[in-house]
Design a protein around this nucleic acid. Structure first.
Lengths: 145, 145
DNA sequence: TCCATTAGTGGGTGACTACCAACTATTGGA
DNA sequence: TCCAATAGTTGGTAGTCACCCACTAATGGA
């Protein structure tokens, strides 16, 4: 692909290409090494980072539709990576928790993601990687998610 | 969206989010101000940057499937932004050219893209924008497109 | 002259994403 | 006690994206 200068000079364009390729790489490795989808990984990570939570709260954090959350959670339950029980204080809610098995799977997933990350960012020095992360993080927050 | 640290610390993740949001913003503005899709813009830009070319060559440069190129080109022809005639030297090929009208539309499109780019990258100083562009460009080439 | 190859075309698919509407069970306040 | 609001669930849609196959017309070399 010998892209024309007009496109190569557009930061947004290159950024998008790199972002999509990166996401694909992470998703592929995650699936191959842990059997998890990106959404499943995100949910497990959320549970680990913020503790047990209602299904809707997890979905809200990740920007996932409640109806999609159900299906993601179904998969995690089926594999015993997460557990859910009704919240005694409000029985409409679930209290979703990470199981020990889920915690182990998450550890493997983190490693897979980190490894892919290392590969993809290999052209940059550690300083540059930190720079890049800082810049896109600012854009991320600046754009309101 | 209060994303969990695990995801926020993953450069690939944030990069993807920013990339997709940026692309959407550019596409929306492009559509609103010029009626062009991103692919149509890319094709016009390619024709302007590299001169008249066969349909397949344009598609090859952009990484677009030949069958998709046909449909994109149909739209451009319908609006009189591009013209195609059979290449006399090899009548299987088309020789696709940019019309004056296409050139004017492209100019407007470039302005729309540049404006959106300015908005999206507003949180960064000019130096930082250049830095970001340099970093992602290296990743783009490093990853082989 | 025959045939493998190439440019362009038309029709279509499968994956993914992000949605939406309608429903049940439950809650908490009027 | 009644009811609006909420958590979760089910089923389904619409758009995009990147493909793939089969076909025609034309080419150029054996």
């Amino acid at each position: 692909m010998e892209l024309p200068p007009t496109l190569l000079e557009t930061t947004t364009f290159v950024l998008h290409k790199v972002g999509v390729a990166g996401r694909r790489a992470v998703a592929a490795r995650l699936a191959a090494e842990t059997g998890l989808s990106l959404w499943e990984f995100a949910v497990l990570a959320t549970l680990a980072d913020t503790g047990p939570a209602a299904q809707r709260e997890v979905g809200g954090r990740l920007g996932a539709d409640p109806s999609d959350m159900v299906r993601i959670m179904d998969g995690l339950l089926r594999e015993g990576l997460a557990a859910r029980e009704r919240d005694p204080a409000d029985r409409r809610r679930y209290r979703v928790t990470l199981t020990p098995s889920g915690r182990r799977r998450l550890a493997r997933a983190r490693a897979a993601v980190a490894e892919t990350e290392r590969e993809r960012l290999a052209p940059l020095s550690p300083d540059e990687r930190a720079q890049l992360h800082g810049l896109v993080a600012r854009l991320f927050h600046g754009a309101g998610g």
